[in-house]
């Protein structure tokens, strides 16, 4: 019972997750280095994982844990494809600054 009392409330976790998510979003929008943008996206996905697990723990559910595993698997697959794309890109043009990729304009 004591442990229950001392537990950090759910809202704190949700707040942490929302903050991380916003940091990720701002990172994607502001940074111009492809790898850093990529990292920011990973932060967004992990922010989601935090809320999934927090919901599970506090509402005594289980689906969210499975969901978070799926998120991790998919994130890993995405990383491999994403890095492959960046490497292919780098071979043709030795830069990863996103502003320099603008050969297509209307």
């Amino acid at each position: 019972m004591d442990i229950e009392m001392e537990m950090v409330p759910l809202a704190h976790y949700l707040f942490l997750s929302a903050t991380l998510f916003v940091i990720g979003v701002v990172g994607v929008l502001v940074r111009r280095n492809a790898i850093v943008v990529f990292m920011s996206i990973e932060i967004m996905l992990n922010a989601v994982n935090i809320s999934l697990i927090a919901f599970d723990r506090y509402l005594s559910l289980h689906d969210g844990q499975i969901f978070s595993f799926m998120v991790m698997c998919v994130a890993a697959a995405e990383v491999s494809v994403g890095l492959a794309i960046i490497i292919a890109l780098f071979r043709n043009k030795p830069t990863i600054n996103l502003d320099e990729f603008n050969i297509m304009k209307s």
Partner: peptide, 11 residues
């Protein structure tokens, strides 16, 4: 062009 399309689509 194909590379750039892939990168934009991916990100």
């Amino acid at each position: 062009k194909s590379n750039e399309a892939a990168l934009k689509y991916f990100l």
